[in-house]
Computed example of a mutant assay.
Amino acid sequence: MGKKYCAMNTKYYKNSNVGEIDHVLRNMAINVNSIESLTKNNFGFCFGDSDLKTHYKNKLDQAKKANKLALQSNSNTFIDSVLIFDSVQFEKCLNDGKKDEVEQATKDFMQEYKNLYGFEPIGFEFHLDEGTKIDFDTYEKLDIEEQKKYVAVENDNEAFTTEYIKRNIHAHAIFLNYDFQKNKSCLRNMRKKDWENSQDLLHKYFEKFGFDRGEKKKTSKKDHKNKAEFVRELALKNNELVENHSKNLQEKNYLLDQIIDHQNDLNRFDDLALYAEKIKKFIFSFKEKNPKLISKLLAMPRAEQFKDMALSIYDALTKKTDIAPILIEEIKPLKNDEIQKIEVDVEAKKKRIKKINNRRKYSNKPRPNKDI
């Protein structure tokens, strides 16, 4: 008879990849590789009072407060140890009523894992809803021993079973990459021998259920990756790309709205731009004749502030009437404090000059005018 293996494959993630935990908890809108009717059979445990993801976030915050330098933005914050079990042997454990014992063995495994390597256990989830599906006709063609590897897929819409699944039974054991006793991260201290010993540790707790220790990997990590893992990773990357694309679309929509609003503003001032251009040409042609008045006109900050004046001047230009009186009449309401101040200063200077001249008129000895 073939061996009934149990094995362990650990991967580590940054906090930005917390979507991996959503996959573990089946929180995604589309859970790739899972069969919805079998998801109800999944089971797990959280070492905190909340759900697994919330407990992870709480422990991560606690670790950051304990040591701000241990887990930074680019650090790997958690590991996902995938515990893989021979499906036939695991089904036998469940049928023998050993589900609670399996759950307790997983808790004990994770606690000792913490004692040996420092990783803080967050929780685990057993997935019994993944695997390879075949239809009824294909199932009927299998021999009896091969059929034992498949279980029926329940379907409320069918009167009889039409699909069977060869389950890929595994558990996701989530650990925080932090040792609260030593107040530091753990991954950098792990060596190749430690990962090999962790396989022995898993077998230590599941040997009593009839599982053999998984063999050492003889292939590269890339070659060892099975179809389920590969598809799941693609799904996670796809979800991340969709989220980023959605954010980019929102930003582009916001910019597009701004551009449309700006274009509408420009359209509202199309006529004004035409008038302003004609005023500009007129101003420079008139500048030599009345420099002070024109300099004040040019000092105005925005053309739209004298739109009515622009219309009047344009009418005057097109009718070839005397522009000076119209320009002066239009500029009067726009006088500001500075212009009025200049006019007051001019009047005061005129009075001062008049007073000095009168003094000279009645003086016996004329003197130079130093005050002007």
Rank of each mutant, 00 (worst) to 15 (best):
K4I: 00
K4L: 05
K11E: 12
K11C: 09
Y13N: 09
N27F: 10
A29F: 13
I35D: 02
F47H: 02
S50I: 06
D51E: 13
K53F: 08
N67L: 04
S75R: 05
N76K: 15
I84E: 04
S87T: 09
K92G: 01
L94N: 01
Q111F: 11
K114I: 01
F124M: 12
F136N: 14
L142V: 02
K149I: 01
E154G: 10
E163M: 13
I165S: 05
H172V: 10
F175E: 05
Q181Y: 07
K182I: 07
L187W: 03
R191Y: 13
N197H: 15
L201R: 06
F209E: 05
D212Q: 08
K216R: 12
S220R: 00
E229R: 11
N238M: 10
E240K: 15
E240R: 14
E243Y: 06
E243G: 01
L255I: 05
D261I: 10
Q263G: 04
R268W: 01
A273Q: 12
F282V: 00
K289N: 08
K292N: 00
I294P: 00
S295I: 00
A299K: 13
P301H: 07
F306E: 01
K307P: 00
M309S: 09
T318S: 11
L327V: 03
Q340A: 08
I342D: 14
D345K: 11
V346W: 02
V346N: 09
A348E: 14
K354P: 02
N358M: 08
N369F: 15
